[in-house]
Design a protein around this nucleic acid. Structure first.
Lengths: 199, 199, 199, 199
DNA sequence: CAATAAGCGAGACGGTACGTCCAGTCTTCTT
DNA sequence: AAGAAGACTGGACGTACCGTCTCGCTTATTG
């Protein structure tokens, strides 16, 4: 999925391609985005795209990564609940914003038909975010802020899964309030107060 | 999204179309599925498809619904935890099985580029499942089996979101064990035992 | 080589294609003539061309035929020498003219790389001309105007071959004077006067 | 058309290019022959080809010349008829043979779209053959073996034109028998025996 | 009980984009 | 300084489908 990166490659052309893809996707939407269109807009031969990327989605993934800077670093103020809410709100603002979310969402959608893309999306993007979250969770566990017997990966799925579920499958919107509510609910658990049967 | 259903419609042709779509999607994958191919396989004019469905995804959605029989009914043995685990395991077996999941997944993927499809998918399918789950949750709340102050929809998102997250975004697999672990974790909450600060 | 001609075919589109091909070939030359260009100029989908013709040369052949009207009929005034000279001069004027010769020549050139085209060119065009000439020669033979033991086809080759040789291979030009000289020479034979050794 | 021949030129590379072109043309045919393919097969940079030849046809012409050795010398036994038949049969065997004719034919075909190539083909190849033939004809004329008032060039056209006509335009084959029959016919002339009107 | 309208299979149509190949130019590194 | 290697822009290839359309044919009301 990730393009080869030899020395001979023209960085100028590569950047033009990525930028053109981002712009066009914004303008006409992912469905009408075409390799041909990207090439024309970027002033580049189609071959130059096919030489370095396997699909338009791969170009967009590169675009996403170059914009996102991958500062997946988690805040660590010492208070896990605050930190996770801060991070989720920030992610919702950037990744979920109007300039990024359409691309991100299109990639996730495309990945459902393209196993290679799915893997690339995970390996080069989502996996890093999830990994950073899991690391922060482990710290919190060591500090006794969340239960030590929970699998950090499972915790990630619980927290982030709820956000993605809402954004990708429902017709409701996700905002900071929502992410906060999800964190609170996950923290408290579903079992009624005083019922320690599940603990 | 949903096709018109007048009297003059040939049910024979419609069924042939749906079956051809399901078969072809299985054989060549959603990406290579084409209206033209469906028409040929079904022995049907292209127009007959365009007359009743707006896209190949809409045909597949009909196929999904006709297979799923919409038995979204939740078990109710009186024990919420057992019931939810039973239901999730069942759903994982059917919806997540090799004969249905590829179609379902393709629809979800496609819906990320097609707001109409997303709405149809929710209104005619996922929404019903989520609604049934929310109903069961409300019963459990009334019976004091889970905390009464939790928004049932949020609970749904927490439980099902984790499953979808794993199946759609990660490269790991989801089985009954996983769904069970998710339920346990959600029930217990992340807060360490004895820490009632979040309750 | 010859296109299928079923009922469903749009004559309007076919004519547009042929005309566009002739025009473009005139304007940019055969080398730069492209199916793509023809389609665009004709306001027609590329498929419509590929559906009915195997190559741009086949389109041009149709164009040549539709312009030439195939009035391969030979004059017959009773005097063979006059008639053949008349016909050759006429052919040189039309087929060899600036509006037809470039197309004709391009077809002949292309046929050297394409056996199917060569056969089509012969069967649908040159063969008819040669056949009409051979017929006229047979009449002349019956009337005792040319020797009866000569193979009419061979006579054709001798007369027309000289013309094509000059036009296709040399850098000299062919005009009515030239064709007339060729006929005279062929008629008289190379053997010196009074030498009947070859007769 | 003819390549520049400076001192710095690598003869090794030039030979590899010519040989690769001949081989590839034999294998895949002129139509699918490409500069790129030749360069790869010859183990040579594309630029090296572009530096010395203007087109793939020019390379082939060089190949033709290097194979043909240009032994355009005409036999001269004193008997023109025998000599011309000998020469034509020989030419038919070599130039018309399976290892040369495809290349030769392709060049002639290509020359119909490329005036420069046509001129080069004449100047560097066909013209020499025709010139040698015309010389031999002039000798025969001086010896009174063929009529002195015939333009030697016209005689060439008559004799060779018939051969080329058959090979390039008809679907019949040309062999020694055919060339012999053409010579006989041309020698005797078309006029009926005893009719000296044309002489 | 025709006529008439709708749905139907079929497939041609103008288009768009695909992914590939190659042209011809240019740059880099090697000999 | 020439050559090999190969990336570059650009154009055309031939294919696959799109969504629209027109054509006859069948079928099922409805005037």
């Amino acid at each position: 999925m990730s393009p080869r990166r030899p020395e001979r490659r023209s960085e100028e052309a590569a950047n033009a391609v990525i930028q053109a893809a981002l712009d066009l996707c914004q303008e006409v939407g992912y469905r009408k985005l075409s390799i041909e269109g990207i090439a024309t807009r970027a002033g580049v031969g189609k071959n130059t795209i096919y030489r370095w990327w396997p699909s338009k989605a791969a170009v967009l993934l590169d675009g996403l990564l170059s914009n996102w800077k991958l500062d997946a670093s988690f805040p660590d103020t010492g208070d896990f609940v605050t930190d996770i809410k801060t991070q989720m709100a920030a992610a919702s603002r950037t990744l979920g914003g109007a300039s990024v979310f359409p691309h991100y969402r299109a990639l996730i959608g495309e990945a459902q038909h393209d196993p290679e893309l799915q893997r690339a999306l995970w390996d080069r993007f989502i996996g890093h975010l999830a990994g950073a979250a899991a690391d922060r969770i482990r710290i919190a566990q060591r500090q006794g802020q969340i239960r030590a017997d929970a699998d950090p990966d499972l915790v990630c799925e619980l927290l982030y899964g709820a956000i993605y579920y809402r954004r990708l499958l429902t017709t409701r919107t996700a905002d900071a309030e929502h992410t906060s509510a999800i964190v609170d609910l996950a923290l408290a658990g579903l079992a009624p107060p005083g019922d320690d049967s599940a603990r």
